[in-house]
């Protein structure tokens, strides 16, 4: 269970307030108008932005002030998910050991994860030598080996074509099902939300509302969401 108890996340002059809880294993879409605070919410949970009031709990443990790497979180950013000077295998290996000293078993897990996302044979390539979709797969393979219970996506697939994006989202769904991870993804597309999530957090004017079921919410959107969906 991820809980935000009266939490205020500060991003420069801008603030997002959240008082909500997400049950384990849920897949949640974060939806709302541009500039409403979706990314701020995600980055607050990931630990990149300070929480000025309230607290964040994971399994009843206070992680409000934990550094990003010490949180139960794996995150995919809008861009920059791979180190450009490291090979794909090294990039994935970082998810296991941030000092790259992998043992044989860990190397096998890296190979397994790369196989799982369909990148076998590309281990030695540098990110620039891969297509956009392959880069996303590599980043997902890293998230897979990280095996964190909370997966945050800040629109990492926005640059991909629709078919590729769907394939990636399906892959994310499969992976989170396999690992039982809780998924939190920023989305602009209600169809994406319907496709893979079961809950939606609506963020509007600096308030993150508690999650509601995806289908009913989209079928009968409240005023703020209706304005956004058009």
């Amino acid at each position: 269970m991820l809980k935000l108890e009266g939490a205020t996340i500060r991003n420069g002059p801008f603030e997002v307030r959240a008082d909500l809880a997400i049950e384990p294993g849920r897949r949640v879409a974060v939806i709302g108008p541009s500039g409403a605070g979706k990314t701020t919410l995600i980055e607050g949970i990931a630990g990149f932005l300070p929480v000025t009031q309230g607290r964040i709990l994971w399994r009843d443990q206070d992680i409000t002030h934990a550094p990003p790497g010490k949180r139960p979180v794996a995150m995919l950013f809008q861009d920059g998910n791979l180190f450009a000077h490291l090979s794909i295998a090294q990039n994935v290996g970082l998810g296991l050991r941030p000092d790259m000293r992998l043992n044989a078993e860990q190397k096998e897990r890296v190979a397994g994860a790369l196989a799982r996302v369909g990148l076998t044979g590309k281990e030695a390539r540098k990110p620039a030598e891969l297509s956009g979709g392959q880069q996303s797969r590599a980043a997902l393979a890293r998230v897979l080996v990280q095996a964190r219970p909370l997966l945050l996506l800040d629109e990492p697939f926005a640059a991909l074509g629709p078919a590729l994006k769907h394939a990636m989202l399906d892959l994310v769904t499969e992976l989170s099902e396999e690992t039982g991870a809780t998924l939190l993804m920023v989305s602009h597309d209600p169809a994406d939300a319907r496709r893979i999530t079961d809950r939606i957090i609506l963020v509007d004017e600096g308030i993150a509302h508690p999650p509601r079921e995806t289908g009913p919410l989209l079928d009968d959107p409240p005023e703020a969401l209706r304005a956004y969906l058009g």
Binding site: P67, P68, G69, G80, N81, L86, L94, G95
Partner: peptide, 25 residues
Amino acid sequence: AQNGRLALSLDMRSTFFLLRVLLPR
């Protein structure tokens, strides 16, 4: 700017970031 957040989210240690990311780049 490019790699800081990713390194943090991976819990990369300061020395490792310096030696294996910053210096090579």
